[in-house]
Computed example of a mutant assay.
Amino acid sequence: MKSLLLAESMKIAKQSKTYYALGAIFLIELLILITAYYQGSTILDLLLDNLKQSFYFEGDLLNGNLIMYIVLNSLWFNVPLILMIVTSGVLTDEYKDGTLQTVMLQAVKKWKFMLAKYVIAVCFTLFVIIFMMISTCVLAYSLFGKGDLVVYLNTLNFFETYDAFHRICLAFASGAIAMVFYCTVSITLAVVIKEAAKTWIASALFLVITNLLLKVDFGLKVVNDYFFPKLIDTWQQLFYYETDWPHILSNNMVLIAYSIALMILGIVVFHKKDIG
Rank of each mutant, 00 (worst) to 15 (best):
M1I: 10
M1T: 03
K2D: 01
K2N: 09
E8Q: 04
M10P: 00
M10R: 13
Q15L: 11
T18V: 11
E29M: 12
E29Q: 15
E29R: 04
L30Y: 02
L30N: 07
L31K: 01
I34W: 11
T35L: 14
Y38W: 13
Q39V: 08
T42H: 13
F55I: 07
D60I: 10
L62K: 07
N65P: 01
V71K: 10
N73W: 06
L81E: 08
I82W: 03
M84Q: 12
I85K: 03
S88M: 14
D93W: 05
E94G: 06
K96R: 15
G98F: 06
L100W: 04
Q101H: 09
V103R: 01
M114L: 12
L115H: 00
A116H: 01
A116W: 00
A116V: 01
K117Q: 04
I120W: 06
A121H: 05
A121W: 00
T125C: 00
F131S: 14
M132K: 08
A140R: 03
S142W: 10
L149R: 08
V150T: 13
V151W: 07
Y152W: 10
N157V: 11
F158S: 09
Y162L: 07
A164F: 00
F165S: 12
R167H: 08
A171D: 08
F172L: 05
G175W: 12
F181Q: 07
I187F: 04
L189N: 05
V191S: 03
A196M: 11
I201S: 14
A202R: 05
A204Q: 08
V208G: 07
T210N: 14
V216Q: 11
D217N: 15
F218Q: 00
F218M: 04
G219P: 01
F228Q: 05
L231C: 07
I248N: 08
L249W: 09
N252I: 07
N252E: 06
L255E: 03
S259A: 15
M263S: 10
I267N: 04
V268H: 09
V268F: 13
V268E: 07
F270W: 02
K272C: 04
